[in-house]
Amino acid sequence: MAFGHKHILGIEPLSREDIFTILDTAEGFKEINSRDIKKVPTLRGRTIINAFFENSTRTRLSFEIAGKRLSADTVNISSSGSSVAKGETLEDTARNIEAMRPDIIVMRHGASGAPHYLAERLDCSVVNAGDGAHEHPSQALLDLFTMREKKGRLEGLEVAIVGDISHSRVARSNLYALNRVGANVRLAGPGTMLPPEVDRLGARVCNRIEEAIEGADVVMMLRIQLERQAKGGPLLPSLREYSRFYGLNPDKLTLAKPDAIVMHPGPMNRGVEISSSVADGSRNVILDQVENGVAVRMALLYLVAGGESEDKD
């Protein structure tokens, strides 16, 4: 195995082989999370900076725990709003961080492409923890890990992704990842939330949620951003109508395969994209996703930390 990536900027640059390497590595790390002593010395002496320029609780927490369980020193920087608003450019902010000699910067940023910008300018590894409406690779990988764990396979799985596809980095990363591993994706969402030509990313675009869910092995509901006010015009008449046409409830879920699982990247808006009875039902694997997130992020940090040098074995 040679994992030749210094950075994880998205799923798009990863091959099918890379994805399986990450998932298999995460299997090894998952065991640690159930031990009494949840720590291995793998990244002892390494410094990981979690630079979050956009609000996030769970992704930051997950990366922080992942780093700590690998014995890396993890430091968090949070800053809401763009660095330019503070009068400092992103490059200057990054150079200041780099001067403290981190080995890995885990970055969340509101601007699509911001991690690419950093990766081009810095020497350390950059792991994208979500950039604008572009990619959220660690989320897609933990989603795949969970699907494989629950379904025993990825190839040929029918996966429905429902919600605000336009603004969703989770949807994009999952589209790339699921296509690489041979799963089939169906998308559904309001017409205002489907980006143009999204079918070219490898998905069947459905007009109704029912059509997307029918016969699905996995139903992934995306978060509706209650606070999103698009400058380009209104996206929804009301959350009530959204919930009726695009929300997941037990009735709609009966259209999926009997053993279908329900996923959500969190945090959920109960009663909007997902009814409480589904959110608390036996089909949902949402907490498994959160748990697996730590193992997958450990795998990413581990692989990136050793990704520069060639494998000699």
């Binding site: 798009e12 699509s112 492409g113 950039d131 604008g132 409406a133 572009h134 990619e135 980095r169 994009r172 980006p195 143009p196 030509e197 999204v198 070219r200 990313l201 698009a230 400058k231 380009g232 015009g233």
Partner: peptide
């Protein structure tokens, strides 16, 4: 709106507003 590039497949892929 707050578009920053042409609306189309490339914008969809890059996650930039069109």
């Amino acid at each position: 709106g707050d578009g920053v590039m042409n609306e189309g497949f490339v914008a969809t892929e890059l996650g930039l507003k069109g």
